[in-house]
Each structure stands twice: as structure tokens, then as C-alpha cells.
Design a protein around this nucleic acid. Structure first.
Length: 268
DNA sequence: AACCGTCGCAACCGCAATTGC
DNA sequence: AGCAATTGCGGTTGCGACGGT
């Protein structure tokens, strides 16, 4: 027994939506709404589409309040900042950007912002970290970055959900397991940047979630604009830097990694 | 003009979470 | 409580547009 498919794939259309299909779906939703059941909707609306496909089309494209393309600098900053705080929770990030969908934000990140982040990253291995944080700050273009590098950049982005009693490499107290690049920029109420380290002693195990810290579990992320380091006791150490060598990373270098000219520019 | 590589976006896929029975 | 159906989400893929050679 496998999982029951959401629709009969042989009998549904796939690929790009035609204007007629768009109009049909729009018209139906205008008259009837979703009826609380997307799976049954295409049949009722006379569309040969999977319910999931209808839902996606509506949410990402047909909704009247959707903005497409043309992300502003302000939106870029918000995305970068939130990504630095919570990682790839696109729906949460999108909820802070009126008219933007999670798919839009995700695409924008993958095609534009990630590259901004990658610029300035020196290699994926730890031996290069000293170089990266030295005075001779080097810029590496996206073309020179391997998938492994990017994966490491991505995986090194701290997430509150990764609060796992210090076992996560992201927050390990053992500097040898620290990721190579990212500084943690916390999305505090006033976008106040924070440098964070992991204080294992402040996040006791068995607090009620499998991750060992219910203060910073994903469930606390519903209202992202309210996130602050104070939501996780283990993240309250605000002053230490995150660098295996102990070298404090210059604020403007952080901003550079996001493609901004200065740290003030990033957090303003 | 033809080819090729890159980019950006829409759509799909599969899994986890939620809901309803 | 347990199961199936449905929804939500993030990662990935496919493809057309575009620019460079």
C-alpha cells in the first residue's frame, strides 16, 4: 500500500495554465470560494487539474492582491534579515511582505539574494575561515562556488528550530564544528543585529519537545516580527562573536555578504 | 544565424502537519 | 486513539527568454 495519490494523474492536465483555465478558476472561486476542499474543486469547476495545482495557481498567481517581481531594496533587506534568523521558512517570511507569496520569496532568494550572500564567501572548508575573517577580506564570485559551498552556506544559516541543546553544529560550543561563514543576525524588534553564541547551559534538555528547547521551537515562530533572542534563553548571550578563530567579524563585512554597502545600510 | 549557457519564474513533487471521522 | 483525507510547505525541476560567442 502506498500513499493514495491526491488525484488521478492520467486524467489531469499538467504544465502551464492557459488563460481559459485561469479565468475558469477565478470565476469559480469568485462565485463559490474554495468550499473548503481544494481536492474536489477542479471537478466542480470543470477543470482538468489537480486540486493542489489549482490551489497553487490561485495562491501564487491569481489572487488579486499579489505583487509580482520588482522586489524593493527594503524587501530584500527584510528577506535577508529574516533568512538569517529563521532560515528557509518562506511562508513566514512572505507573511511579512504584503502581496508576496512564499514561492515568490523563495524564487527571489534562490535567483538573486543567495548570490549576494555567496559573494564574499571564501571556500567551503574550515581551513579557509581564517583567511575569510582576516584583514584581507576577499571576494569570491558565485561562479567559483561549488554546490557544496552553497549547501554549507545554507545549512550554516542558524534557525531557531535548530536549537537542540548544543548538539547542532550551528550552535556547538566546540568551535571546530562551527560553520564557515555566517554570522547570526537576529531579527529583533527593531532589526537590531546581534552576534550570538550558543550557551548550552541555558537550554536544558527535555523541556517538552524533541529538540530539547521549547522556547525556540518552530511553534514559537508564528509571529516572526516578534521574534527576539529573548525568546530562547540560550540565545541571550549577545556579545560574543561567532568565529572559530575568535576574530570579530567586522559589521560591514556582514553587510557585504548581503550585498549592502555598510552594516548601517543593512540594518536601517 | 545558430548554438550554447545562464537566468528567472511557474509549476510539480514529496513529505509533514493538520483535520475530520 | 487511529486512520485516511486534505492542506501547507520547502525543495526541485522544466522551460522560455535572453545574452554572449
Amino acid at each position: 500500500m502506498g500513499r493514495t495519490p491526491c488525484c488521478d494523474k492520467a486524467n489531469v492536465r499538467r504544465g502551464p495554465w492557459s488563460p481559459e483555465e485561469d479565468a475558469t478558476l477565478k470565476e469559480y472561486l469568485k462565485k463559490h470560494g474554495t468550499g473548503g476542499n481544494w481536492i474536489a474543486l477542479p471537478g466542480k469547476a470543470g477543470l482538468r487539474r489537480c486540486g493542489k495545482s489549482c490551489r497553487l495557481r490561485w495562491l501564487n498567481y491569481l489572487r488579486p492582491d499579489i505583487k509580482h517581481g520588482g522586489f524593493t531594496e527594503e524587501e530584500d533587506k527584510i528577506i535577508c534579515t529574516l533568512y538569517g534568523s529563521i532560515g528557509s521558512r518562506w511562508s513566514v517570511i512572505a507573511s511579512k511582505l504584503p502581496g508576496r507569496t512564499d514561492n515568490d520569496v523563495k524564487n527571489h532568494w534562490n535567483t538573486k539574494l543567495k548570490k549576494k550572500l555567496a559573494v564574499g564567501h571564501i571556500g567551503g572548508n574550515r581551513s579557509n575561515r581564517e583567511t575569510h575573517y582576516s584583514d584581507n577580506y576577499q571576494v569570491k564570485t558565485i561562479n567559483n562556488i561549488s554546490d557544496t559551498d552553497l549547501a554549507q552556506i545554507s545549512s550554516s544559516t542558524p534557525k531557531f528550530g535548530d536549537c537542540d541543546n548544543g548538539n547542532s553544529p550551528l550552535f556547538a560550543t566546540d568551535s571546530s564544528t562551527l560553520p564557515p561563514l555566517m554570522e547570526v543576525i537576529s531579527y529583533q524588534q527593531h532589526y537590531e543585529p546581534q552576534r550570538l553564541t550558543w550557551d548550552q547551559s541555558q537550554c536544558p534538555p527535555n523541556l517538552g519537545t524533541s529538540s530539547g528547547c521549547n522556547s525556540c521551537s518552530p511553534s514559537s515562530l508564528h509571529e516572526v516580527s516578534g521574534i527576539s533572542v529573548t525568546s530562547c534563553p540560550a540565545l541571550q548571550n549577545k556579545h560574543a562573536s561567532w568565529s572559530s578563530s575568535g576574530t570579530m567579524v567586522q559589521e560591514d563585512e556582514i553587510a557585504l555578504e548581503f550585498g549592502f554597502e555598510s552594516f548601517d545600510d543593512l540594518v536601517s
